[in-house]
Design a protein around this nucleic acid. Structure first.
Lengths: 165, 165
DNA sequence: TTGGAATGTCAACAAAGCTGACGTAATGTG
DNA sequence: CACATTACGTCAGCTTTGTTGACATTCCAA
């Protein structure tokens, strides 16, 4: 793939086209987070809580260290968020069986309810965008996003996905 | 366009597919901002400064109010950023001719130098992603991003683009 | 001439990131 | 077994970037 060269086919790599892509990314990301943000604001939670909830929901029983690697924040920052979620009864933190230093994280029923509420909102927008653009566009969208990630993040992420999808 | 229904063509709208799109968006956005962030960190500036510089560069002479509408932040927040940029000699704020309440914003030479440095880094990543994915994928990418924006942002943005592109 | 719009600024605060330091428990290694 | 390392939590302090609310100035327009 990616076989194209010369002439018109390179027009989409002009600085102007790239700038438009950059701006589209900025505005789309704002739209992408807008709906969950509105819900979170009513609950005294923020985007950081959403991210934690999302990835715990995706990989129940994940450890704190795993989460740190995926989210790319410091443990102090994540800990602040997790503490709130545990105190509020949205997340359950269980000592590891084989390795008792680890904490395995699970959503409680209440946590799953919030997760559903948040991701329903986000998926609704995603679904609308996918539907408006069509399957071919979606395939391209995913390709470009994948290529835009940091290489090691891409490797790690797609490695995980192959094992659990 | 967007004519498809039933059967396999809807597979790309499963919750699992949507979730993967959501995560790809998260990781890609991080990659998208990583390079400029590294440059900004060496200069005691942040993403907010980058955004202001970007949109002033894109529309020289834009007013503070225009910028507020595009960036979607409060004037206090933007003002803090603009003040720093003006004090550091990166941005020139000129009183409007017809309406002297307005300030028209321009990048100084130094400001344009930084803009180039930042957007070169960001464009390099964008270009690499575009090149890896190919023109068709890029078209789809842009379509999906456009559909993901807030409707009024989309309207405003694409309206502006039609006039000055 | 007066009301309202555009701008700037002060103060106070919150979310969410960071560094650095320290403690504890559990595990791995020599 | 002794010791180093790992996983996690926590305290303190700082930064960036957002928020409200209040208020002054300038100036256009009715």
């Amino acid at each position: 793939m990616a076989e194209f060269q010369g002439g018109e086919n390179l027009l989409f790599l002009t600085d102007e086209q790239l700038r438009q892509g950059i701006e589209a990314m900025f505005f789309a990301y704002r739209g992408f987070t807008a709906d969950p943000d509105r819900i979170l604001a009513t609950l005294a939670y923020g985007r950081a809580h959403h991210r934690a909830i999302h990835f715990i929901s995706r990989s129940p029983g994940t450890t704190v260290n795993n989460l740190l690697a995926i989210l790319g924040v410091t443990k102090q920052s994540l800990n602040r968020v997790l503490r709130a979620l545990v105190e509020d009864g949205l997340v359950d933190s269980r000592v590891g069986k084989s390795d008792k230093r680890e904490r395995h994280l699970y959503l409680t029923e209440e946590g799953e309810a919030l997760e559903r509420k948040l991701s329903d909102a986000q998926r609704a927008r995603m679904r609308a965008a996918y539907r408006a653009a069509g399957p071919q566009a979606v395939a391209g969208f995913r390709q470009v996003l994948k290529a835009m990630m940091d290489p090691d993040m891409r490797r790690r992420y797609y490695a995980i996905r192959e094992t659990d999808t």
